[in-house]
Amino acid sequence: MKALAGSVVLLALAATAGQAATYPGKTIEIVVPYAAGGGTDLSARILAESLQKHLEGSTVVVRNEPGGGGSNGTGKGLKAEADGHTLTIGAQGPIALLPHYGATTYSIADVDFLGLMGRNLQVVLACKDAPFRTFAEFMDHARANPGATLIGNSGAGGANHLSFEAYGKATDTSYEHVPFGGASEALTACAGGHIDAVTATPAEARPHVEGGAVTPLFVMERERIADMPEVPTAVENGVDFTWSSWKGVIAPKGIPEDVRATITAVLAAAMADPGFVQKMQEMGEFVDFRDPAGFETLAREDSARAEGLIRDLGMYGMNK
């Protein structure tokens, strides 16, 4: 695997011996649009290590530009010079959701997608003392009490909230959405029995599930997931519904073709590196590399879907 990755890089380097021979001419910066310490930041730091290893003679540093739910740093990263020395971590929120609220200085059309790093799978959990323990019980309860089941989310208008709005739409049910300041706050309230259900990633949910405070109801994937094979999907229960969030590497449009080829090849190699994959998995990240075209398709699909939802909620363009 490692040898293969290495030869990909060599091939890429050989193929782009022209201008790209001088790339990187200086330090490469990866802009992380979130504060240091979160999952995205840590993933970026692991990626920086791996990139440094696979791109000979390079120095890769992480620069945190938090704020605006990620739109601040993403906007700055997309306004940087398109020379390949400023890369940005592109996440679902700032790219596919926030532009629809009208609060960003960019749109999805300004993004050059270079490679998808991973996805965050979503599992729905029944909280402590909730009157349901299975998917069927949950749906019965939701139908019997329209608008009354308390669903915690990690922030209003964020992926975690929109996904459940979308789920309600798909199943013709309604809920009371209770926003929290982040996934761990919502999970804590769930483990304490202050709300009825919550959405989280398998890694976030695992300790609470094992501790017995919460019960997984279903995952928002098409297939069951390796981390929690005993948990059903909504799809197998007859609800055609999936949702996950994601992050990858993006840049402003207009990077010289040969430099771009080097970057995408090195990214592919860095993300296939066993060391990288292992570190990411230990952190509970779901590594899912996709090439530029695959990444762009995913992002555009999600953006279109989110736009419909946000218009339905009457939140479209509200921050213009």
């Binding site: 999952g39 930041d41 840590l42 300790p207 230990e282 509970g284």
Partner: peptide, 16 residues
């Protein structure tokens, strides 16, 4: 939160 990140990075998931 920062310490959690560090723990997770070292392969330890904090929990019960």
């Amino acid at each position: 939160a920062m310490m959690t990140g560090a723990l997770i990075l070292h392969g330890v998931t904090p929990g019960p």
